[in-house]
């Protein structure tokens, strides 16, 4: 399942997409420590699978919480994406 967390407002669309099919086979959950803000958590979803999700308190402000990892110039690879070895995480902006 592709789970999109975030929002769109007058300034644009800000979504982090987690492909939870990749989470099911992931044992080490690198996303938990990979995000400097600790935005990820592991939950048991409605279908009894252990998957990653963005914590509720971050979902309406991810544009701002992700800003430190997204400098305008010379943007480095995103730490959450680097830490997620199955490649489940995508950012829309």
């Amino acid at each position: 399942m592709k789970a999109n967390y975030g929002y769109m407002d007058g300034s644009g669309e800000y979504y982090i997409t987690i492909d939870t099919d990749h989470c099911i086979e992931c044992a080490h959950h690198g996303c938990l420590d990979g995000c400097p803000k600790g935005m990820f958590e592991i939950i048991t979803d409605d279908y009894d699978d252990e998957v990653a999700q963005i914590k509720e308190e971050f979902r309406k402000k991810i544009k701002y919480d992700c800003a430190d990892c997204k400098p305008v110039k010379d943007r480095p690879p995103l730490p959450c994406q680097e830490a997620c070895t199955p490649g489940a995480i995508e950012h829309s902006w």
Binding site: M1, K2, A3, N4, Y7, M8, D9, Y15, D46, Y47, R59, K60
Partner: peptide
Amino acid sequence: GKVTNFLMNDKC
């Protein structure tokens, strides 16, 4: 009826 993709907007 199993969810394969979802997107929500509850910001406003």
